[in-house]
């Protein structure tokens, strides 16, 4: 039997990235020791034993096609994506259009304006362990530029009871040397010259709820 041998070449999904420089900002006292039994206790009646297992691992989050957003943060930029077919724009970015009619079109990157508006908001008086000392936190979902979706982040430079739906915002980045390429590199602030509306019943209510939080945080070690 004779014939031509056909070799199908697989299309490469992406080139394997090469990393030569790593920035680390891990606190010195964090050690990735993996799994270890680190203690135990036995109840006073001798019937029940608790064993303490310590689990400490470093994870790698590869951002892949989303990398421009996180790289952008290092440069003080908010990067979004848009669909070249329907022009819908998103921050947080989508790597493919969400419309079935656009057939999951691969999106293109665009630098977004550093302005936004409040879509909805809350004033947190309690949170996860790593955030407790920053309470109270004003967490908002904001629409950046003409994004079709809202992004969560903190609103600073405002009294918690003064937040308003639809209020105009600016995006403020940490100094360049403090940025780590994560969403914590920026926060929202009211635009310059923005003035809150006068105190009302709801604002008084929020103020009353928030005031004990300031006191509670002062007691934290």
């Amino acid at each position: 039997m004779s014939g031509q041998q056909i070799i199908k070449k697989k299309k490469k999904f992406a080139d394997e990235p090469n990393f030569t420089e790593k920035k680390t900002y891990r606190p010195n006292d964090v050690k990735e020791t993996g799994l270890a039994f680190v203690g135990h206790e036995i109840s006073d009646d001798g019937k029940v034993m608790n064993q303490f297992l310590h689990y400490d691992q470093l994870y790698t989050i590869r951002h892949g096609w989303n990398s421009p957003f996180f790289k952008g943060l290092l440069d003080g930029k908010i990067m979004g994506t848009y669909c070249p077919i329907c022009n819908d724009t998103w921050v947080p970015a989508r790597t493919h259009c969400w419309r079935l009619n656009c057939n999951l079109e691969h999106t293109k990157w665009v630098e977004m304006p550093l302005t936004a508006k409040v879509h909805t908001w809350t004033v947190a008086g309690w949170s996860g362990r790593s955030s407790l000392k920053r309470l109270p936190i004003v967490l908002i979902y904001a629409i950046i530029g003409d994004s079709k979706v809202a992004i969560a982040n903190e609103l600073h430079k405002i009294k918690p009871w003064d937040v308003e739906f639809g209020m105009p915002l600016k995006i403020v980045f940490k100094p360049k040397e403090e940025r780590i390429g994560a969403v914590t590199d920026f926060h929202f602030e009211p635009i310059d010259n923005w003035k809150p509306s006068p105190m009302n019943k709801e604002k008084e209510r929020i103020k009353k709820l928030v005031e004990p939080v300031y006191e509670w945080v002062k007691t934290m070690k």
């Binding site: 909805t120 908001w121 947190a124 949170s127 996860g128 955030s131 936190i137 982040n153 994560a182 969403v183």
Partner: peptide, 17 residues
Amino acid sequence: IRYELMVGGIYPIYYAA
């Protein structure tokens, strides 16, 4: 976790918003 967890967000806060 890329977008929400580290900005102080936990479920009661998301639900409150």
